[in-house]
Design a protein around this nucleic acid. Structure first.
Length: 850
DNA sequence: AGCACGCCGACT
DNA sequence: GTCGGCGTGCTC
């Protein structure tokens, strides 16, 4: 038996980011495991912590060791593999261990210490009951107990009844007598302790069941006194139904009160108890069971490749590149089915916005109650219950967004990541993990298979599949070229908005789009309009020739800064004055860009009187369930046109949509991000996939000022391979992922001069350190190992919440531990500056460079 | 993160 | 001469 437990305590700071040793009390022997959640004394406080190791001896001097105070769960909330995973995460993403552990659990398990009050020496007092004032002889224990006033006695009695009462509850109940409670504590009549209390309680319902054998009950029913007609009915009902029946049901079905039922319990015929139940967010939905579809030949080949690995229990990764509407989901469903038959479990990750009721229904109707759904719109209680269903083995499939990758399955066989290119798989707050990388690591732990699926795979994944590297992540590429229903991909027309302007059309709708909308309205077919609002930020473009100002060093569009009236690059810091006329064609129509959905809606109403528009954007979908409501409205044909931002591009499937319009394809193209072209290509491809998915042929109209840009051209031809070829060339020349890795270091402080000095210091320190290690070098030389630092520059958001922000970027190739280097330097700098106002954040493999 | 221990200004 | 400012150091 181990004597010592290593515990990570719930304090996310540098000084406490290591295990602390505790003595395991006798009573916890055999119960305490790696992954257990415990309450421990830490300095003067009581904190929640997680056991990450067990041992016989400790290096800490015995006098310093304290015992663990309490064990918080019967079964450990974390398994050993998740504890190991947290160690890997803290190293890879430079985060505190506790932060990594915490992200794996539902918020409900983030307990905080609370004060609990009880009457001192409970056993003595319990016997005395309410006589405590009348029997002063026995109260020698407390010198002044015989002087208890009425108020004091009342408080003591209240506490005694419940044995232990939370301080918070007490101060609320006896709000005006806080001083009395304080005094009782001082005199020792009451004592306090601290204990960890969870945020969410398990939910229970009152149930009723027979307390005697059924034949006995039948006899009792026979002989029931006639005037107790109601009770007789109730008892008969319970005997007939059998098992545990919710009290509520009895009351509604028979129209009786709780009192009637209770008197039966008092007679000892039945028992009433609180039964633990799971909150079911989908309890009001019914799901018609569905059967597997017959797979197309292509689907079958993909499925066979996956099943081959599953059946031989070999780990492996697959990248399934299937065009929109190719029926990837059906392949996922059948693969999951296989894994379940093997007594293993599966995780299905989808982007948050794609986790629609449609999607959930598909899984629930195939796998019934074995599905646990985890998404952000659940209450913390609901999320906790879904999590427990997984932990306790009731659920076999977890479907959810990013954090579902931590679903606590014991025997994981398959992890699927749909729309794997989505940036929402990267968490923006600490721990800044990427679910794809975590998935690969977890799969290695379990010998499980990983499937990444997308119509537009990320360049990182695609490149990893293409190059035969010996990396940890080396997926096999599987392709699906045809659509499941045999429909054709829609025809895409590119409209050159420069031409429109030349011909005098200043409206946001080109003539072809205008005409097409009119046509569909007439035919009573539906339209989806996409306004890409990511480009709301200000890039400078010439309306006449499409010229966009770009940085000479970085090949990235410049951002317009109104304050200083100049253009800047967020990568290297380059700045130049804002042009008055277009440097390419001399036109005066040069301006910065941005259009809102609201304006488009107004414009639509003006141009097409009577048009029924459903607008979907952050403004209209913040309310719970509004997303679903708007989509249903559109599905039920209560609207002709669905107008929205990115969210209309994903996964929606409406049979009568025959026209998809993209108002401004360019708006994401000129964001200061090296992934701008990739994002544009992905968005156009995805949104084009919304049209003509069923019998009616679809058409897509893309308006753009850059009709020749390769992301637009290749998207219009549905040509992923050509796009990738071209984009990879750019990435290679400029040394961006997948040809190197990135870490973004962001500094923030209230005082600008200090901040600049720190940022410059940091960059210098990175250079010095990596030079010493022999890492520093130019990445452009195609060396296998090299590291380079860019910046520091002001962040794209230079001031946030009264704090200035600077950033620098580390680029490297090779498998050196840059996260550790970055963290090490952070700590050195923090130590030398000694300013706790200084924040340094490290983002390894950033997806958004802000 | 808290909380305590520890060295320098405005007050009974 | 004391109460208290928050600098820095520790928490098994």
């Amino acid at each position: 038996m181990s004597r010592i437990a290593q515990v990570i305590v719930d304090v996310p700071s540098r000084g406490t980011d290591r295990p602390f040793d505790y003595i395991i009390p006798e009573s916890m022997q055999g119960w305490l495991e790696i992954g257990s959640r415990v309450g421990v004394p830490f300095g003067p406080r009581t904190l929640q912590g997680f056991v990450v190791g067990l041992s016989m001896e400790s290096d800490t001097p015995a006098v310093k060791l304290k015992p663990i105070k309490e064990l918080l769960d019967l079964t450990p909330p974390l398994s050993e593999d998740l504890v190991e995973l947290s160690e890997w995460m803290s190293a890879r993403y430079a985060c505190h261990r506790i932060t990594a552990l915490q992200v794996m659990l539902p918020a409900a398990l983030k307990g905080k210490a609370e004060r609990y009050i009880r009457v001192t020496d409970r056993s003595e007092w319990a016997e005395r009951g309410s006589n405590l004032q009348r029997d002063p002889d026995e109260l020698v224990l407390f010198e002044s107990a015989d002087e208890l006033t009425d108020m004091e006695a009342q408080i003591v009695a209240h506490i005694q009844k419940q044995q232990e009462v939370r301080m918070e509850h007490l101060t609320r109940k006896f709000a005006s007598h806080a001083d009395v409670i304080k005094q009782l504590l001082q005199r020792g009549v009451l004592s306090e302790s601290r204990s960890i209390r969870d945020k969410v309680q398990k939910k229970t319902i009152r149930t009723v069941s027979l307390h005697l054998p059924e034949d006995e009950i039948r006899t009792i029913i026979e002989e029931f006194p006639a005037k107790a007609r109601r009770q007789k009915e109730v008892l008969t009902f319970i005997a007939d139904t059998g098992g545990e029946i919710p009290l509520k049901d009895i009351m509604t079905v028979l129209g009786v009160t709780a009192g009637t039922v209770k008197s039966l319990a008092d007679k000892g015929y039945i028992v009433i108890r609180d039964m633990e139940v799971f909150r079911d967010p989908y309890k009001n939905h019914s799901f018609a069971p569905s059967q597997p579809f017959v797979l197309t030949d292509e689907q079958q080949m993909v499925y066979n490749a996956i099943v081959q690995r599953l059946d031989t229990r070999t780990e492996g990764e697959f990248l399934v590149h299937g065009i929109t509407g190719s029926g990837k989901t059906e392949v996922y469903l059948q693969s999951i089915q296989r894994v379940i038959e093997q007594d293993r479990q599966a995780i299905m990750l989808v982007p948050e916005i794609a986790l629609t009721p449609q999607m959930v229904e598909r899984f629930k109707s195939r796998f019934g109650d074995h599905v646990a759904v985890m998404h952000s719109r659940l209450s913390s209680g609901e999320r906790y219950d879904e999590w427990r269903k997984i932990r306790e083995g009731q659920a076999l499939v977890a479907i959810g967004a990013r954090s579902a990758i931590f679903a606590p399955f014991a025997n994981l066989g398959l992890i699927i990541m749909d729309e794997e290119h989505e940036t929402s798989y990267k968490q923006e707050e600490s721990p800044k993990y990427h679910a794809r990388d975590v998935a690969v690591h977890r799969a290695h732990q379990h010998g499980a298979v990983v499937i990444l699926g997308s119509a537009t795979p990320s360049l990182e994944s695609y490149h990893a599949a293409r190059s035969q590297s010996s990396d940890e992540f080396n997926p096999a590429l599987l392709e699906i070229h045809g659509r499941a229903l045999g429909s054709e991909l829609p025809e895409v027309h590119i409209v050159d908005m420069r031409e429109e302007l030349k011909e005098g059309n200043r409206s946001m709708f080109s003539r072809p789009l205008h005409q097409a909308i009119e046509d569909r309205l007439e035919k009573k077919q539906q339209i989806v309009l996409l306004l890409n609002r990511r480009g709301h930020s200000t890039f400078v473009m010439c309306r006449t020739c499409g010229y966009v100002a770009e940085c000479p060093n970085c090949d990235i569009s410049l951002t317009f800064h109104q304050r200083s009236n100049n253009l800047r690059c967020h990568y290297c810091g380059h700045a130049q004055p804002a042009p008055e006329i277009c440097p390419e064609c001399g036109s005066e129509h040069i301006r910065y860009f941005g259009t809102g959905t609201q304006r488009v809606e107004e414009e639509l109403a003006k141009l097409f009187p009577g048009i029924r528009v459903v607008r979907m954007d952050v403004d209209t979908t913040t309310q719970k369930g509004s997303h679903e409501k708007l989509l249903n409205q559109f599905r039920d044909k209560q609207a002709d046109l669905l107008l929205g931002t990115q969210m209309v591009a994903k996964g929606l499937d409406f049979p009568d949509v025959t026209l998809v319009g993209v108002i401004a394809a360019d708006s994401a193209l000129h964001l200061p991000d090296f992934r701008a072209a990739e994002k544009t290509f992905q968005l156009l491809t995805q949104v084009a996939g919304r049209a003509g998915r069923h019998h009616l042929p679809g058409e897509v109209i893309v308006q753009t000022y850059n009709p020749d840009h390769y992301s637009v051209v290749h998207a219009s031809r549905h040509d992923y391979a050509s796009f990738v070829r071209e984009e990879l060339k750019h990435r290679q020349v400029l040394s961006y992922p997948p040809y190197c890795r990135l870490a973004l270091i962001t500094f923030s402080h209230e005082k600008l001069p200090l901040l600049v000095r720190i940022a410059e210091n940091y960059v210098q320190m990175v250079k010095d350190h990596s030079h010493k290690l022999g890492w520093l070098g130019s990445l452009e030389r195609f060396s296998a190992e090299a590291l380079d630092v860019l910046g520091p520059v002001a962040s794209p958001i230079p001031r946030l919440k009264n704090r200035y922000r600077f950033q620098c970027m580390i680029k490297w190739r090779g498998d050196m531990d840059v996260a550790r280097l970055a963290e090490h330097i952070s700590e050195q700098l923090q130590d030398s500056v000694r300013d706790k106002d200084l924040q340094i954040s490290i983002d390894v493999d950033p997806q958004v460079l802000m």
